[in-house]
């Protein structure tokens, strides 16, 4: 029998978003409330399985009385708050943030970002051809996943997933400062010399495809990766007794990737090296 934890009953609090009354349980963020009200707020560094880092600043909204805009993903709703999730001021900051990101990072594999760039009329080219970019070569130093930091927006999600929020491996951190900051293991060594356990939980939370399984990376390079042709099959991992739920991503009758549902009470989207990467035996047809 599945037991769904109900938690402590929480009071509802009332505030307004864009002139409409919103009622959300105490402790909810402005983003929760916006989503419940059916408003689309762009997010990049926010993750459903992680604590908000509010580093990307693309989800900013206006709160009456606040000197600056506030990040919707981490600011808790308060009774009587007056929030504007759109408007010129909010749209301006979101547009600039998207332009700054798109002009410095390769966002070609970031889901939904093309739509946001259009929606906010962002023109990343306006900074000119000489605008500094990350321009990092993909790092292929192991057989399981690839780090392409030319696509990294420094959202800290991989660091948080590797650290005390999930895996407790602490294999990676942000190194350097400012525009030169990068995700790195100690001394910027290859992954194989680090504390990495190849669980791939960093890959799971990466919002831009800067981290991708080697298989997906190779297929994209070969031009054969096609999500529209992929089906998803839910099963249970057979390796150990924990019984993690797996979602097999299948293209042309071949498993091309394995994930776990983020709302699964056992995994919260996390897996280990075997569950995430150890699927070759299934299709060993020889």
């Amino acid at each position: 029998m599945t037991v769904t934890p109900l938690g402590i009953p929480r009071r509802l609090l009332e505030f307004t978003i864009d002139g409409e009354v919103a009622r959300v349980p105490e402790g909810s963020t402005i983003l929760d409330a916006c989503r419940a009200a059916g408003k689309d707020v762009p997010t990049l560094c926010e993750g459903d399985t992680l604590r908000p880092k509010n580093a990307c600043r693309v989800c900013v909204v206006e709160v009456e009385g606040a000197r600056t805009l506030v990040p919707a993903c981490s600011r808790k709703a308060e009774p009587g708050m007056v929030v504007r999730s759109g408007g010129e001021r909010v749209r301006h900051s979101r547009r600039i943030v998207l332009e700054l990101l798109a002009s410095s990072v390769d966002l070609s594999t970031t889901p939904r970002v093309a739509g946001w760039l259009k929606e906010y009329e962002a023109k990343p080219d306006r900074f000119g051809p000489a605008a500094a970019r990350l321009d990092e070569e993909p790092r292929v130093d192991n057989d399981l996943y690839v780090r392409d930091y030319g696509k990294c927006i420094l959202c800290y999600k991989c660091v948080d997933a590797c650290g005390d929020q999930w895996q407790n491996s602490f294999a990676i951190s942000v190194a350097g400062r400012g525009f030169g900051a990068r995700i790195a293991v100690e001394h910027d060594a290859p992954l194989t010399d680090s504390a990495c356990v190849y669980c791939g939980n960093c890959v799971e939370v990466c919002p831009t495809g800067a981290l991708s399984p080697k298989r997906e990376f190779d297929m994209r390079a070969a031009g054969t990766w096609d999500e529209s042709r992929q089906t998803e099959t839910t099963t249970v991992c057979a390796y150990c007794g924990v019984g993690c739920t797996l979602t097999l991503h299948v293209q042309d009758n071949e498993i091309v990737g394995v994930t776990s549902p983020h709302d699964n009470p056992v995994t919260h989207g996390n897996l280990c090296i075997k569950g995430r990467f150890g699927y070759q035996h299934v299709q060993n047809r020889g």
Partner: peptide, 20 residues
């Protein structure tokens, strides 16, 4: 640009674009 910690996008990239 040199002193931005690099945590948030407006400052990390904005200070670079300002200098450029």
């Amino acid at each position: 640009r040199d002193e931005s910690c690099g945590q948030c996008v407006p400052c990390r990239v904005g200070t670079v674009r300002q200098e450029e």
